[in-house]
Amino acid sequence: AAGVPIKAPVAGISCGLITGDEGVYGDFMTMVDIQGLEDFYGDMDFKVAGTKKGITAIQMDLKVHGLTPEIIKEAFAKTHKARNYILDEIMLPVISEPRKELSKYAPKMYTLQIDPDKIGDVIGKGGKVIQEIQSEYDVKINIEEDGRVYISGVDAEKCEGAVSVVKLIATDPEVGAFYNGVVTRIMNFGAFVEIAPGKEGLVHISRLDVKRTEKVEDVVNVGDSIIVKCIEIDDQGRINLSRRDALIELEGMTPENEIDETPRKPRRDNHRRGDRR
């Protein structure tokens, strides 16, 4: 019912034992589906779980010194018959196959592979980055030396969010890609936006909006979440972003101004040093 993908349904049943004065070598009686009374006063609690085809698990509590082959054979026979009855008459008429999706209450595990060289970035200095991800998304993250990352949690949406963040950290920014970032700093020439933990880029003031921007604070403030497009990564690894391009391409907004991409020529001074006019 939890939606766990199993090959076949499994049922379990207990078999108890009552022996006479001569112990296991004298008269004995076995019984299935024992209750607390039989468990307390009886000599055995023989639990068997399995499918129609075979046994998947056995666990036994025993108060006598050993069992005879006859007792074991009878216990297996009775638990087999009872197990099939539970499967055919109780379980399968109600739920014939696992649910199509995992229950929202079932724990979930996600696995992904990252470049081992990026493990340090995901963990962060002193474990700061990985601890923040675990806290924000309520997940547990384990990373192997070969780059395998295991993310476990109960809420599928939060687990998927954590997976996305780890992928962002472990993947170098890509020109042309869009990112949901957070404004971290504001300067007079633009805003710095964190697109992943430890990865920050600049949105120049000319690329903050589809219209002319006089002040950065007129458009964004520290802490704002904005969609940006990566438009350039220079030779020094600095990331240049554009909110303007994201608004145009993702939201279909029309630019009110055009950005002049032509390099400006240096200004020439017509006045020679010492000239007076």
Rank of each mutant, 00 (worst) to 15 (best):
154 V>I: 15
149 V>Y: 11
141 I>T: 03
128 K>D: 13
153 G>R: 05
130 I>S: 03
131 Q>K: 15
152 S>L: 12
136 E>Q: 09
138 D>Y: 04
133 I>C: 07
146 D>Q: 11
142 N>K: 08
149 V>W: 05
128 K>S: 12
140 K>Y: 08
134 Q>A: 06
139 V>H: 00
140 K>H: 10
145 E>N: 08
143 I>L: 02
121 D>E: 09
153 G>V: 05
153 G>T: 03
147 G>Y: 11
154 V>F: 09
126 G>K: 06
153 G>K: 01
137 Y>D: 00
132 E>L: 11
156 A>V: 13
146 D>W: 11
158 K>G: 06
122 V>D: 01
135 S>W: 07
145 E>Y: 04
124 G>I: 00
130 I>D: 05
155 D>Y: 07
120 G>T: 03
138 D>V: 09
145 E>H: 07
125 K>D: 09
147 G>C: 14
157 E>T: 12
155 D>R: 14
140 K>E: 11
144 E>V: 07
145 E>T: 09
151 I>D: 02
152 S>C: 07
124 G>P: 03
146 D>G: 08
127 G>W: 03
148 R>V: 11
126 G>L: 01
121 D>I: 06
120 G>H: 04
160 E>Q: 14
139 V>K: 05
124 G>L: 03
124 G>K: 01
128 K>E: 12
127 G>Q: 06
122 V>G: 06
